[in-house]
Design a protein around this nucleic acid. Structure first.
Length: 376
RNA sequence: GGGGAGAUACCAAAGUGGCCAACUGGGGCGGACUGUAACUCCGCUGACUUAUGUCUUCGUAGGUUCGAAUCCUGCUCUCCCCA
């Protein structure tokens, strides 16, 4: 995997570039739809490609390991062959799942033990087996196994957690570098900067990650309960240290405003469940603000779902019809909402890229941030 | 014609003397959701009120009782079975 930095904004730290993988190019800034179980919920690959126009999607180590399991994935020839997606894939390591399944987890130096949410069976993740599993899944970009502490962790906990994440990273890298890809194309391992909301920890973590000289770097442990301003501050702290010539991935973030603020602070890659999950729950993101399509006020609004939208669902369906579908529990509603939201997120990333290129990003972004926070 | 059962809030359905403005579903209204255990979760849903509270409700008209959705009587309506 290679990254080419193409332009940096004059007024902000925003930048654009291209990531080259064996499954194709990714133009940054980019938003990556989340496809936890090997599928972006409610969408066909055709819609992802032709309508949403996603360059890369995510998969999740934790979920895919539990089901269908690495044997099936290996027999299939990797996740790309299994799900038919021939563009790049990134897999998360499962570190976040260990955090979000807090009741069942147990962290030790060796790794994390947890119980399957499917059948209650006991499992262990270690830096080594998480690398092996991600080799079997075969994503183009794979993530280090980290601990993701809660946003309100105290300094002591944050520091111990960070040290553990760093020791685990060394083991991840060792195992990764000792093993080969299984399907004939290359994979890249991204370390994950942690450190909660503590500046010195974040700086130390970023410096440690950079010393490992990998193809790209992720910032994790943000948008996990800490104030938004703290999140922005941490991004700034970390991005001062991360190298210019490598992509930076802000994990799990976020709202459209979060993404614009992230871009203007030098983030290149984002992922978030928000467009799909919130979409399935009736929340639509538009360039004018946020809509709860379930609200009664839309029941006779026959205007298009989003007149400014880029996907066909935005023009083919009306708000009133979409409201009717979601109130009636029709599956089509989930599809329309998900396509719309992903289309919007991808548009937001592409428009940012275009604006960075032509020099109009800063003013446009300030104006967009004002509009995007609105509730319609 | 004979026999039986029942009428409770938007719908369905508990409740058979005080803890009942009334369980529980559904529907309705609103909210939440940030590296997806999520077509999920959480509120509200008689009226007025921020709330305490006050007022009006369990087919209908009376009655018994300190007290009635609950007991008694009349009326109205609905359903089932047999002819």
């Amino acid at each position: 995997m290679k990254f080419r930095l193409e332009k940096t904004d004059k007024h902000t730290n925003a930048r654009c570039g291209t990531i080259f993988t064996d499954h194709g190019e990714i133009e940054t800034p980019i938003f990556m739809p989340v496809g936890t179980l090997g599928s972006v919920k409610a969408l066909h690959i055709r819609e992802l490609k032709d309508d949403v126009n996603a360059d890369i999607i995510l998969g999740n180590t934790y979920h895919l390991y539990l089901r269908p399991g690495t044997e099936v994935l290996e027999q299939a020839g990797g996740l790309h062959k299994f799900n038919g997606w021939d563009r790049p894939i990134l897999t998360d390591s499962g570190g976040f799942q260990v955090f979000s399944l807090a009741e069942n987890r147990k962290l030790t130096e060796q790794g994390a033990t947890f119980r399957s949410h499917i059948d209650g069976s006991k499992h262990i993740f270690t830096p080594e087996n998480v690398m092996d599993i991600q080799r079997s899944i075969g994503a183009d970009i794979i993530m280090a196994f980290d601990e993701c502490p809660p946003g309100d962790s105290d300094y002591r906990y944050a520091k111990d957690s960070l040290d553990l994440t760093h020791r685990w990273l060394d083991r991840c890298i060792k195992r990764f570098d000792q093993t080969e890809p299984k399907y004939g194309y290359s994979q890249s391992l991204f370390p994950i900067v942690q450190g909660c909301v503590y500046k010195d920890l974040r700086e130390r973590s970023a410096e440690y990650m950079v010393s490992k000289d990998r193809d790209g770097y992720a910032i994790g442990g943000l948008a996990v309960g800490e104030p938004t301003e703290d999140m922005y501050a941490m991004i700034e702290v970390v991005n001062k240290i991360l190298p210019q010539d490598k992509p930076r991935y802000l994990m799990g973030v976020g709202t459209p405003v979060n993404i614009l603020e992230g871009i203007s602070r030098g983030i290149d890659m984002f992922d978030c469940v928000m467009p799909t999950r919130n979409g399935r729950n009736g929340m639509l993101f538009t360039s004018e603000g946020t809509i709860n399509i379930k609200n009664k006020k839309w029941d006779r609004d026959f205007s298009p779902v989003d007149p400014n939208g880029t996907s066909f669902v935005d023009h083919e369906y009306s708000k009133a019809y979409l409201r009717h579908l979601i109130k009636s529990n029709e599956l089509l509603a989930l599809q329309i909402c998900s396509i719309h939201n992903l289309g919007f997120y991808l548009w937001l990333a592409r428009e940012s890229r275009r604006r960075i290129k032509d020099g109009s990003f800063s003013a446009w972004k300030d104006n967009m941030v004002k509009k995007l926070g609105r509730r319609l």
